[in-house]
């Protein structure tokens, strides 16, 4: 009973904290698990979403295992998000390289965060294709690949400031942006453009913000 009360108290403090600071940084929600990347990331805690949380978009997405999942199920740890598509030959491999570079830093710092790729080509990026991509690129447990119908993709793109357009040759022109969402789904950082210098800054933002 005492333990339950303490838990409730902690939860209430958490709520109050969030109300005072809509853009509450990830630091408040550091999960207990210190071995992300090697072991499983703790299950989502589904906190009440703030007024600016992107996780308020409540139409379900489909992940690389074929399971439906809400964006809110990503809550609990910070998330790196990029919008790409698996058949992309031009800039997506560079986005992937940037994200892997960030991941290395996260692993070094034992920092729990997820990496989410949202498909800009939902027609071709079926769960099977996403799953094969995950395997082919040797992506760790941190990674979640998601697809959804076009209208949902457009909504996320609008929120993340990603412009994209299908070209007649079957490619998708798109902005190169890596976004950081805090544990509550608030947009707290964006890396505009790609490259080692920029991705190092993104990694530093995440890790330093936490300490």
């Amino acid at each position: 009973m005492t333990r339950l009360l303490v838990l409730l108290l902690v939860l209430c403090v958490g709520c109050a904290d969030e109300m005072h600071d809509e853009n509450a940084h990830a630091g408040h929600d550091k999960p207990a698990n210190e071995h992300a990347g090697h072991t499983t990331i703790p299950p989502p805690v589904e906190p009440a979403l703030g007024a600016m949380s992107l996780y308020q978009l409540d139409t379900p997405w489909t992940d690389h295992t074929g399971s439906e999942r809400s964006l809110a199920s990503l809550a609990g740890v910070p998330v790196l998000v990029a919008m790409t598509y698996t058949s992309c030959q031009v800039s997506c491999p560079v986005i992937l390289a940037d994200l892997k570079r960030i991941e290395t830093r996260l692993n070094q710092a034992d920092f729990a965060a997820r990496i989410v790729l949202l498909s800009l080509d939902p027609e071709r990026d079926s769960p099977e294709v996403l799953s094969a991509f995950l395997e082919d690129k040797n992506l760790s447990e941190r990674w979640i690949l998601l697809r959804a119908p076009d209208d949902q993709v457009r909504e996320m793109a609008a929120l993340l400031g990603v412009s994209y357009r299908r070209t007649p040759d079957g490619e998708v022109s798109h902005s190169n942006i890596i976004s950081v969402l805090d544990a509550g789904g608030n947009l707290v950082y964006q890396q505009l453009g790609l490259g080692a210098g920029k991705s190092d800054e993104t990694a530093l933002f995440l890790v330093n913000d936490e300490q």
């Binding site: 800039s91 076009d150 609008a158 412009s163 357009r165 070209t167 022109s173 902005s175 505009l192």
Partner: peptide
């Protein structure tokens, strides 16, 4: 639905 799709800036394919 795609009112903003023509506004491609800093994008990947050079147009």
């Amino acid at each position: 639905s795609d009112f903003n799709s023509a506004l491609v800036t800093g994008e990947s394919r050079g147009d």
